[in-house]
Design a protein around this nucleic acid. Structure first.
Lengths: 112, 112
DNA sequence: TGCCATAGTTCCAAAACGAAACTTACCTTG
DNA sequence: CAAGGTAAGTTTCGTTTTGGAACTATGGCA
């Protein structure tokens, strides 16, 4: 079965994961909750590659979790900001954070 | 950056996602919370392929989220059951479920 | 002996990914 | 005005991961 088929699954967990349940997407959203909104910020913060980020941002905008707002028209530049729908993923990020704090202690520090 | 490097990231969300933040893993855990514990049950419920499931189960056991308990010795057979550490992911699954219920309505029904 | 069930494992082609270079469009500085 | 810098992607290419299906192993049952 293809992962994308999950968007119409009977289970709401599966439907949610069809959007945010891949590598990187929740990390982008974490950065959004930390106040980031621009392509280069996400790149620097997460360490993901540029074309993967571009792909994920497109999907997030298509699914109504992020909104693409122009902040410059001369060279076209955009902010990616959480919609209300996106904001409501905060509890999910918080529970994942709490679990990580408790069950995933840091062994060595990393810069990224 | 490799995904596996996230396990030592400064951010607890990233560290959590280094274990459960890929496709399928959270779906397996959902099934565990629904009471499933066997290979064929996970296969039938989630629709993932057999060798991906085998890989994910191995990782989950290695990371202490599931425990592999023999329920038959003659042909060696195992139950995969949540550890305490795994049980504590329940809040995360519940928030993802709630978000899905609210923001991901079902378009067409699917069997899986 | 032959068929069924459970739990994997192996093989191959297709899709996704990581790294790095390239592109576009403007701005600044010499 | 040419050179270099910034922001936001896009392209290319080689490696990994995935999906699908077949195959294996072990034992039960008729």
């Amino acid at each position: 079965m293809k992962w994308s088929d999950l968007s119409d699954n009977w289970c709401p967990v599966a439907r949610t994961l069809s959007i945010v349940g891949d590598r990187w997407t929740l990390l982008i959203l974490r950065d959004c909750f930390l106040g980031m909104s621009r392509f280069e910020q996400f790149i620097e913060s997460s360490g993901m590659t540029r074309h993967i980020l571009a792909d994920r941002l497109k999907r997030l905008v298509e699914s109504g979790i992020l909104e693409r707002k122009a902040y410059s028209t001369s060279p076209k530049r955009y902010d990616y900001v959480l919609t209300d729908k996106g904001q409501e993923l905060a509890p999910a990020l918080l529970t994942l954070r709490d679990w990580g704090k408790k069950h995933m202690p840091v062994r060595r520090a990393t810069s990224a």
